[in-house]
């Protein structure tokens, strides 16, 4: 492992992809494939969620199996705001980030006392607790989940149209990726990566290791909350299913497929997994078998993920 440094081709490629994405909704409209705008939005949102986990996992070296809890809490904040009549995204989205971030701060403060496998399991335990709390919270719909009948506004713009929400998700993802990219190269990012590589040394050098990790964990949680709030607006529902441990597993799979610790790992993983699902499901009812075999192949033959196939991490 080494520190993250962006490859030279990264910027131009990102600009081209962004331009293509900006044109995508109109193109799909022309082709009369409006359904796929919603699908693309979903991919963007999961790319955001997976990237937030990649921050925690890839850069912070914390294997969290409870990331779906923050994702789900974000979704619930959006739905609860809707229930309370608050439909202004400029208020809802930061609130979702704040609540999910603070929740992650609390979970992290307890969990980060443990190491390795114990950390994996304690994050899982917190996610399970959150799941059962929402299942039994009848005020918020319990197992039925909490519906959002009309998508929020962003500034003055309504997100009811699929195009609008697509652009909102694209904006959120772009902003987050810029932030992560800056962060990874800044002092904070270097420190957190150094802690991942050698915790004892960093501690000996006098770095407040626990505090660095905690901030990283909470930041990941906040961005996951943002993704959750967007997803709830896309599907019109915040449901406890979003908090299930298999959802955390899926996010983890996305990051690992994409490439742990590569800036684009989460994005690539989300795109690959969701496209596979869309394609395989149409061909084969039991597509999970194919997916499972594929994941095994990734573990055995491409252990660094898909992103690693396209470039090296600079030493």
């Amino acid at each position: 492992m080494a520190f993250y440094r962006p490859a030279r081709w990264q910027k131009p490629v990102a600009v081209v992809v962004l331009a293509a994405l900006l044109a995508l909704p109109s193109l799909l409209e022309i082709l009369d494939q409006g359904y796929y705008i919603g699908f693309a939005t979903r991919v963007l949102i999961f790319a955001l969620a997976a990237s937030s986990l990649n921050l925690v996992l890839g850069f912070g070296g914390m294997v969290s199996l409870g990331h779906a809890a923050f994702f789900g809490v974000g979704a619930y904040v959006a739905a609860i705001c809707h229930q309370a009549g608050i439909n202004e995204g400029l208020l809802v989205l930061p609130l979702a980030m704040a609540v999910a971030g603070l929740f992650a701060l609390a979970v992290g403060a307890v969990s980060l006392r443990t190491r390795g496998v114990y950390f994996i399991m304690i994050t899982l335990a917190f996610a399970q607790m959150t799941y059962y709390l929402f299942v039994s919270a009848s005020l918020w719909g319990g197992d039925d989940g909490l519906p959002i009948y009309e998508r929020m506004r962003l500034g003055g713009i309504s997100l009811v149209g699929d195009d609008a929400l697509f652009f909102a998700a694209l904006g959120a993802l772009t902003a987050s990726m810029l932030l992560f990219s800056r962060l990874a190269q800044a002092r904070f990012g270097r420190t957190i990566q150094a802690i991942r590589e050698n915790e004892t040394r960093m501690e000996a050098l006098g770095y407040p290791v626990f505090r660095y990790r905690l901030v990283c964990f909470a930041l990941g949680g906040a961005v996951a909350g943002l993704a959750g709030a967007l997803l709830a607006n896309l599907t019109g529902l915040a449901s406890p299913n979003l908090l299930q441990w298999t959802q955390s597993g899926t996010l983890l799979v996305m990051v690992i497929i994409g490439g742990v610790g590569y800036l684009w790992g989460g994005v690539v993983g989300a795109v690959v997994l969701l496209l596979l699902e869309e394609v395989l499901l149409a061909w084969f009812d039991h597509w999970h078998i194919a997916l499972g075999l594929l994941l095994l192949a990734v573990v055995l033959f491409a252990p660094k993920g898909v992103a690693a196939l396209f470039g090296k991490r600079h030493d």
């Binding site: 799979v253 742990v260 997916l291 075999l293 994941l295 573990v299």
Partner: peptide
């Protein structure tokens, strides 16, 4: 000999395969 992440991914894959095969 692999790290925990690889183990999580591989055995998660096994869960998917096992569930689906049993269903099949």
């Amino acid at each position: 000999r692999r790290d925990h992440l690889a183990q999580v991914l591989a055995t998660f894959a096994l869960i998917l395969i096992a569930n689906e095969t049993v269903r099949l």
